[in-house]
Design a protein around this nucleic acid. Structure first.
Length: 550
RNA sequence: GCGCCCAUAGCUCAGCUGGAUAGAGCAACGGACUUCUAAUCCGUAGGCCGCAGGUUCGAAUCCUGCUGGGCGCGCCA
């Protein structure tokens, strides 16, 4: 909708003509949605922001701006000065009614814009170690990462989703050793799982399958060869299962970037050379250090240990460097709260490599506490007691899981109430929104049976309170998507859809869509068609299904 | 000790780049179905916005200190 721009332009003109042109700054030109409906549809506190600068009373300033404001009656019905100095705009009915036709014309693309067209971004998220099934924490990251990606795409960004696979190093060796124990035990040899190995049930199951399908084939190998073979096998199997879980969760990664690929190319060693060359690295106590302290980190960090092993950090820097080589304008990492201490050093590394501060952003998504029967479900990774993502999805469904995960501020720890998410009742917000969509589909089906169609020529018949509220709500969608995308706040979208559902349900209660009045029926069908489109488009961004009946 | 996150209605949370009377869902209570879906709607009740200062025309929002809770501070990954 170019409505906001229209008002902004006219407002700037009015301010210019009032003689405040030199005093006004961009940040003062705020257009917001007033809390109360009787304060109009759009409001600006610009006069109050100008007051301290021009040293005049806010209401006096506002009055002069209002006097100079050129009203285009197509858009605006009236302007009011209110309260301490707010200028409130009331939109014309004509403009609101026509918005319905515009939405229907845009259809599936309504809500999308080219605000950031031409930019590219990469989201790296989940990136769980391939040493076991995905858990609850990954489930939140997966939902959030996917929705954030969708939101960026909606404002025109060319987005890529990436999963970084840590398929090299100590943990994979441990994984192999753990599988080896299970496998050999299955064959009657006593080889206990290493103390710091992986004790989960899944490796036991895998070992059983292995014996069943391939017998004692691996037992014949000498231990080193066997461990290597089983490591590889376990890794690929775990990866396969993770991919399957994510697919089930309706999440498609564009790229699975393997750490082993970096190591093969010796990317980390080349990077080390580069650091040395640029005097960003030095030797101390037998280890090689990065001067991260010079780039805002708390202290310097080790890149190569005294034993000559490259640290995870060194490889990770090399990995992040590839993101820039792959020419993303913006690189986002989604991490759990346990990694926040890692942000400083990675930012330092990126800056040392000459990448602008704005180009790399870490998004910390807070933890998930699982509740069942009103009690916290304790999870212990060591003992292999984790709640798997598959179990959660199995139990509550993909829609509820994704909706719940998107419905919180990222910085807020999330209490996930399994019992609530499972409930097919009004206590569950997912159904409330989906039900609104299904209800509209039902109306449209009913109308089609009677051979009635939406009629955009009749939109001027939409006049009553609940009709106008619904129109005003659907036209907010573009703005909501933009704000959610720019601020990386998926919960804005769920909140909005819930509000939209409320307004729609009220409209439904107040008005019969299919009635004796053919013209009015056409107009209302056009309105609910637009509303349905907004539900569908919004739910699509969330990755939640929009059922046609419930 | 240092760093990050959190504290708003009984519960779960919005609102936080300062603005008008702090909102929603659930739970509680009272109403509404011969109509296109009652998985819905309407109404009532519910608040020292953790505490104490500060900044200013104005603070849930910004700053400082404190209290309480979660997490992190490896030549681990």
């Amino acid at each position: 909708m170019d409505l906001q721009n229209h008002i902004r332009n006219k407002l700037e003109n009015a301010i210019e003509k009032s003689g405040f042109g030199t005093a006004v700054e961009d940040y003062m030109l705020v257009l917001e949605k007033p809390k109360q409906e009787n304060f109009g549809d759009i409001s600006t506190p610009v006069a109050m922001n100008l007051a301290p600068v021009v040293k005049q009373a806010p209401r006096q300033i506002a009055q002069r701006i209002v006097d100079q404001f050129e009203i285009d009656p197509y858009y605006i019905e009236k302007i009011e000065l209110a309260g301490p100095g707010f200028i409130n705009f009331f939109l014309s009915k004509k403009c609101l009614q026509n918005a319905v036709a515009q939405i229907n014309e845009q259809g599936r693309t309504y809500g999308h814009s080219d605000l950031h067209k031409g930019k590219s971004a990469q989201f790296e998220f989940v990136s769980a170690n391939p040493t076991g099934p995905l858990n609850i924490v990954s489930a939140r990251a997966a939902a959030v990462g996917d929705v954030l990606s969708n939101l960026q795409a909606a404002i025109g960004v060319d987005v890529e989703r990436e999963f970084y696979v840590n398929d090299a190093g100590r943990q994979i060796r441990l994984l192999g050793a753990s599988l080896n124990s299970r496998y050999m035990t299955e064959l009657g040899h006593d080889e206990p799982v290493p103390e710091d190995g992986y004790h989960g049930h899944y490796l036991k199951e895998l070992a059983e399958e292995l014996v069943q399908n391939e017998g004692d084939k691996y037992a014949a190998l000498d231990k080193e060869k066997r461990l290597e073979a089983l490591s590889r096998l376990a890794l690929e199997e775990m990866l396969k299962r993770q991919k399957k879980s994510l697919q089930h969760y309706r999440l498609q990664f564009d790229n699975w970037y393997r750490e082993s690929r970096l190591r093969q190319k010796k990317a980390h060693l080349k990077l080390l050379d580069l650091f040395k060359e640029k005097k960003l690295a030095y030797e101390k106590d037998g280890a090689i250090w990065f001067r991260s302290g010079d780039f805002g980190d708390e202290k310097d960090r080790v890149l190569v240990t005294r034993e000559g092993e490259p640290t995870y950090f060194l490889v990770d820097i090399a990995y992040h460097q590839t993101k820039y080589e792959r020419r993303f304008d913006k690189v986002y990492d989604i991490w759990g709260p346990d990694h926040h201490g890692y942000i400083g050093r990675m930012q330092a590394a990126m800056q040392a490599l000459g990448h602008g501060k704005e180009s790399f952003q870490v998004i910390i998504v807070q933890q998930v506490n699982l509740f069942r029967d009103g009690k916290v479900v304790k999870m212990s990774k060591r003992a292999g007691e984790i709640i798997e993502m598959d179990e959660l999805i199995e139990e509550v469904g993909v829609d509820a899981a994704r909706y719940f995960f998107a419905d919180r501020r990222l910085s807020q720890p999330l209490d996930f109430d399994i019992d609530l998410a499972k409930k097919q009742s009004d206590e569950n917000p997912v159904y409330y929104v989906q039900y609104a969509h299904a209800r509209i589909c039902n109306i449209l089906r009913f109308a089609r049976e009677k051979e009635l169609e939406p009629d955009e020529e009749a939109l001027s018949l939409l006049n009553n309170e609940s009709e106008m509220s619904l129109i005003k709500k659907v036209i907010d969608f573009v703005d909501i998507v933009e704000k959610a995308a720019l601020n990386l706040e998926p919960h804005r979208l769920t909140n909005y859809l819930h509000e939209l559902a409320t307004v729609f349900h009220r409209f439904y209660h107040d008005n019969r869509v299919v009635s004796e009045d053919a013209a009015l029926t056409g107009a209302r069908l056009a309105l609910v068609t637009a509303a349905r489109q907004v539900f569908a488009n919004g739910l699509e961004i969330l990755g939640v299904s929009a059922p046609e009946n419930m």
